[in-house]
Each structure stands twice: as C-alpha cells, then as structure tokens.
C-alpha cells in the first residue's frame, strides 16, 4: 500500500516536478493548485498521509488550510518562499510538521517526508524490491520464503536504498543517514558496504559518477 501525498502548489512547474519525484519514489499523489479547490476535494477524498502545502495560494492560503488538515489528520509540510521567521513560527505553531523554504532540494524533502511518516507511524511497514521483502517492524529481510541474515549496517543501507528507490544518494548522505552524524569515517567505508550488499543481495545499485549510488528497478 503506497503512502498517499497531497500536493498543493500553484506554480505548474514546481507542482509537476514534485509529482514526478514522488511518483518515482513510490508514493501515490494528488496535485492541486487552488486552496479553495482543496477544501472541495477533501470532502470526497481525504485518505492522505501527508500534504505538501504552498503558503501563498489562490483561493485559500496554506495557513488557512491547516484546519482541514487537522480534521482529516493529515500531516503537513509547508513549502514556501516566505522566509520570515514570523511565518515559519506561525506555521509550525499551528501544527505543521515541517516548514521548508524555497528553493529546496528534492532529496531533502523526500528524507523529511520519510521521517515524518515514520514519526507519525504511517510509513510502510513492509518494503519490497523485486523478490526482496523487508519487514521494518521485525527488522527482517526475506527472499521468497527464505530469511536473509544481514549485518545491522547492511540492513540499514538496504532500507535506505529501497526507501529512496530510483533516487541517487550521495556517499555523504548515506554516511550521515546510516552511520549517523557522529561517525567520522571516510566515504570509502560506504563504497565497501555498498559493493558488499550489491554483490550479496544481487541489487541493481548503479554508481552515478560524481553523485553517488542509485538503486534502480
């Protein structure tokens, strides 16, 4: 079951890029451009896990949509060009999970979406990639009916790759996400582990020059 995300953004280009990236990362989405339209839409369909809201919207602004989001228990991330601290504090105090200022990095947004879903207990419990199944509750990996034994680091790495499938992850990001910020190891460590799970689990991890690694379908 894919996580459903509501995109509300009035700029067509940004809306389309968001949609494309969410789709590639395995989310289902609905993209709307008008605040008032959102209210009407939610009356019929409100099974969303998370909403990406622009603040300055035609119809009804993003802050005013918060009520609706609370009513349907949809987590909110504001995506906005408003940099002033007042708006940021207002947005977060009103109950938004996060407040991201434009321009932002797509990968950063995806990471935050994952974290919020995890925090609110809505992230996918089982991840699938080809014949692999990962149970994130039991921390177990199956291939077909057979359980695979992985080192903790290898498991974390695999989960990251599957969660950000089709997405290039830099060595630095992998290092900070999997090993943690306190780890001062070299990116060579990442290379070693990546090539090990690629070989052992037979994963289609592509090395993207100058960027990092990408797990492809």
């Amino acid at each position: 079951m894919k996580n459903r995300i509501l995109i509300v953004e009035d700029d067509r280009d940004i809306r389309e890029s968001l949609a494309l990236n969410l789709d590639l990362s395995g989310y289902a989405y609905v993209a709307l451009e008008d605040g008032a339209e959102v209210v009407r839409y939610l009356e019929n369909d409100h099974r969303f896990d998370l909403a990406l809201l622009d603040v300055m919207l035609p119809g009804l602004d993003g802050f005013s949509l918060m009520e609706e989001m609370k009513r349907y228990e949809i987590a909110v991330i504001y995506l906005t060009a408003k940099t002033d601290v007042k708006s940021r504090v207002y947005g977060l105090r009103e109950g938004a999970e996060d407040y991201i200022v434009k321009p932002f990095e797509m990968l950063e947004l995806l990471v935050r979406i994952e974290k919020i879903l995890e925090r609110t207990g809505r992230s996918r419990k089982t991840l699938e990639y080809r014949d692999l199944t990962v149970d994130t509750v039991m921390h177990a990996v199956w291939r077909g009916g057979e359980i695979l034994h992985l080192q903790p680091l290898e498991y974390e790495l695999l989960v990251k790759f599957i969660r950000f499938k089709n997405c290039t992850l830099s060595r630095e990001r992998l290092l900070s996400e999997v090993w943690g910020y306190s780890y001062f190891g070299s990116t060579r460590t990442v290379d070693t582990h990546v090539s090990r799970i690629r070989r052992d689990l037979n994963l289609n991890i592509v090395t993207v020059p100058k960027c990092g690694y990408r797990l492809e379908d």
């Binding site: 700029d11 280009d13 940004i14 890029s17 968001l18 494309l20 990236n21 590639l24 060009a81 434009k102 321009p103 932002f104 990095e105 797509m106 990968l107 089709n166 997405c167 290039t168 592509v206 993207v208 960027c211 990408r214 492809e216």
Partner: peptide, 16 residues
Amino acid sequence: VTSILLNSETLLKRRV
C-alpha cells in the same frame, strides 16, 4: 529558481 533546481536535480539524480 526552485523550479530550475528541482528539475535539474531530477535530471541529475533520478532515472527518468
């Protein structure tokens, strides 16, 4: 700028 960055990032990091 957001649009340019998002799209170039997609081209750079995504297989589309």
